[in-house]
Each structure stands twice: as structure tokens, then as C-alpha cells.
């Protein structure tokens, strides 16, 4: 995998510096787009997507506070904390209104940002939007909602690696997984903060309030079953199911994804297969 042509910078947020990757130029006729990553990861997952969408708009992928190169917030964050940080990014970059994309935890940040800033957020693209039962949530919390402590024999590394490998996308290679792995584990004792925030925020409580168009992309990843429950909660949204795709699709199906996301963002045209 080669690095996409993009630039990186920091902006000052209310809880410290926020690191971001960006491509494209401000001032074009297309609305800027912001992309929020899954946890525990960083904006690295969007590098190829930025290169593609940056051809005709400003596109920004911040590192969520506590991940990548962004400062840790002073206290364990909520999805609300993450959404406030993304407002800080928009303000710092003088972005008046934007379309937003979120990946897993980032999808919840999208919904909360759209609730907090209804006049500034125009479209949402959610990569997975899981709705959990009590039992699902207990399982997710037990697997991902607590700290990941290093142990002398290195078995924690194999454990984290196995989790990523198990849910790899169909095209992803060991080298692809390794590319994302360091950002996956660098949070150490605070690595679980993003998951804990996500598991405390529910779509049924929050997503009905979002009236902007929402396109949910449901690929065959670890949240596919839970995401199928989202439809009835969407006030103005559709779901596109892509069962041949999984994690890594933004790298391996970059142009195909852009081919249905651009019309959605720019002309309010839903993908043909979205329901």
C-alpha cells in the first residue's frame, strides 16, 4: 500500500491539539467533508479516501482526541466530547458547513455532531450503525470496553492482532493489518476510551432527531448484523448493503465508493441499491 498524497496539520481544540490529515483545497464549489475514524485507530484509515475525494473538495480526517497524534482529553470522553472536538476542527478550519462520514465509533460522532450542529451538517455517511441488545452490549464491552494491559510474554499483542485479523476485509493482507496495527494499540491503558464512549451512546435515543439525509454503508464486517437494525430508526435515511466488502473497502474500493457517495452528497441522489 502506498501513502496517498495528502497533508497533515494540527489545530487547537478545547481539550488540546487535534491532529488531522487533509486533501483538496478550501474555497471550491463543493462542500467540505469531514471523516471520523473507528476506534482505536486514527485518520490513517482514510488516507486513500482523502486522496480520491480531495480531487474536487476539501476533505479532512481528524484523529479523535486520545488517538493518533491528537492529545488525550483530560477525562474519559463521551461521544459528545468527540463531537465537540470536531466542531473545534470545523471552526479552526473556517468550515461553515460540511458533509460528514463516520466509521464505527466515528459514525456515532457523526450523529451527535449533526444533533449539536444541525445547521452546519448537511449529509451523513455512516459506515455501520449498530444497534445492540443488552446481551450484545455486554459482549462488546467485555471484549473491547476495558484497558488492554501489556504482559511480559507479548500475548497481548497476539490477542490484539487476532482481533483485527479475524475481522479483516476480503482483500486485506497481513501487511495491510500491520499498517493499522500500531495506531490500534498505542492508546495503552486508555485504548478502550473510544469503545467505551461508543457503547454508552445509542442510536435509538439519538438518530431519530437527525433530519439530514443519512446513508448507512453496511459491509460484511464485525457490525453487519447489528447495523441491519438501524433502518426503522432513520428519519431520512437509507442503507446500502455491500456484502462482498469489509474492512479495508475504502482502500480497495475507493473509486467505487466515491461513485455513489459523490451523487449523494452533491445532488441528493441515493444509490440505486440503497433501501
Amino acid at each position: 500500500m502506498t501513502l496517498a498524497p495528502l497533508r497533515r496539520t494540527y489545530v487547537q481544540g478545547r481539550n488540546g491539539q487535534i491532529h488531522l490529515r487533509l486533501a483538496g483545497n478550501p474555497g471550491g464549489d463543493k462542500r467540505p467533508m469531514l471523516c471520523f475514524h473507528l476506534s482505536p485507530s486514527s485518520g490513517v484509515v482514510y488516507e486513500n479516501w482523502l486522496a480520491e475525494m480531495g480531487k474536487d473538495r476539501l476533505i479532512v480526517a481528524p484523529d479523535t482526541p486520545g488517538y493518533g497524534m491528537s492529545d488525550f482529553p483530560p477525562e474519559q470522553p463521551t461521544i459528545g466530547t468527540f463531537a465537540e472536538a470536531m466542531t473545534d476542527v470545523m471552526d479552526a478550519l473556517d468550515i461553515k458547513d460540511a458533509d460528514i462520514m463516520g466509521y464505527h465509533t466515528g459514525s456515532k460522532t457523526c450523529v451527535e455532531l449533526a444533533r449539536q450542529q444541525p445547521d452546519r451538517i448537511k449529509h451523513l455517511v455512516l459506515i455501520s450503525a449498530p444497534i445492540y441488545t443488552e446481551a450484545d452490549l455486554a459482549k462488546q464491552n467485555s471484549e473491547m470496553g476495558s484497558p488492554d494491559t501489556p504482559v511480559e510474554d507479548g500475548s497481548h499483542l497476539i490477542h490484539s492482532w487476532a482481533g483485527l485479523w479475524r475481522w479483516r476485509g476480503p482483500e486485506q493482507t497481513p501487511a495491510d493489518i500491520m499498517y493499522a496495527f500500531p495506531d490500534h494499540i498505542r492508546g495503552g491503558e486508555r485504548k478502550h476510551w473510544g469503545h467505551a464512549a461508543a457503547f454508552s451512546y445509542t442510536y435509538p435515543e439519538n438518530i431519530p432527531a437527525v433530519k439530514q439525509p443519512i446513508l448507512v454503508i453496511n459491509t460484511n464486517d464485525d457490525l453487519v448484523v447489528y447495523t441491519r437494525r438501524i433502518r426503522e430508526h432513520l428519519a431520512n435515511g437509507k442503507v446500502i448493503e455491500l456484502m462482498d466488502w469489509g474492512h479495508g473497502f475504502l482502500d480497495y474500493h475507493t473509486e467505487e465508493t466515491a461513485a455513489f457517495v459523490r451523487p449523494f452528497l452533491d445532488q441528493d441522489i441515493w444509490p440505486d441499491t440503497a433501501e
Binding site: L157, I158, P174
Partner: peptide, 13 residues
């Protein structure tokens, strides 16, 4: 870099 992640243990050791 292999699918089983064994290289991670090797490097860590």
C-alpha cells in the same frame, strides 16, 4: 508479517 501475528512476539522478545 504473517497471518498468525507470530512476528510480533518475535520482535517483542
Amino acid at each position: 508479517i504473517t497471518a498468525d501475528g507470530a512476528f510480533l512476539n518475535k520482535m517483542w522478545n
